[in-house]
């Protein structure tokens, strides 16, 4: 029970070298093949592509809107979309068949990530509320709204 908690408190995934200077803040890339761009625009030349889970050094906000950040990856400096950054490495999911870790790509393509209210949830509801579908319908409605928002293109804002 305490494994994760201790891990978090004991190994916060931020590294500060030589004090709290902003240029030593380490962040993680969460998207696969994130382009490191020369300028803070999507049309700018791609210097290299950064794999998911790699660390970059945060150098500052890339634009006044803060939709890009200036980072250092290895020896190269450039810009990445702000949405691609995370303070911690991606969490590994495990396979439902053998319990072994699966890649983010395999997880995404498995369809598991898009699951809504499950058969188990429906069965549970039938057992507990055999004559009142209202609750299940309301949960499914909220899921539907959530799904529509998730699938909207563009940024979160």
């Amino acid at each position: 029970m305490h494994r994760i908690g201790k891990g978090l408190l004991g190994a916060v995934c931020l590294v500060f070298l030589g004090g709290a200077a902003p240029s030593t803040l380490q962040l993680y890339i969460r998207n696969r093949e994130t382009p490191l761009q020369k300028q803070p625009t999507l049309s700018s030349p791609v210097l290299t592509r950064i794999p998911a889970g790699a660390t970059v050094t945060w150098l500052g906000a890339g634009t006044p809107k803060k939709d890009f950040d200036k980072v250092r990856f290895g020896t190269q400096e450039g810009f990445v979309p702000h949405a691609s950054l995370s303070t911690r490495p991606p969490s590994a999911e495990v396979s439902k068949t053998d319990g072994k870790p699966i890649t983010a790509q395999a997880f995404a393509s498995s369809g598991a990530a898009t699951r809504g209210l499950s058969e188990a949830g429906l069965k549970y509801d039938k057992t507990k509320n055999p004559h009142d579908p209202k609750l299940a319908l309301s949960v499914i409605s909220v899921e539907g709204i959530a799904r529509q928002v998730r699938e909207e293109k563009g940024g979160a804002k």
């Binding site: 319990g99 549970y124 209202k134 299940a136 319908l137 709204i145």
Partner: peptide, 30 residues
């Protein structure tokens, strides 16, 4: 043992219904 997401989501669906019921239902228009 770590639980696979499919199992986690199935559990979560049922727990969500349990909690929503216990707390008075959800504020949404079906």
């Amino acid at each position: 043992q770590q639980v696979a997401f499919e199992e986690e989501k199935a559990l979560g669906s049922a727990v969500a219904l349990n909690l929503a019921k216990a707390e008075g239902g959800l504020w949404v228009d079906v």
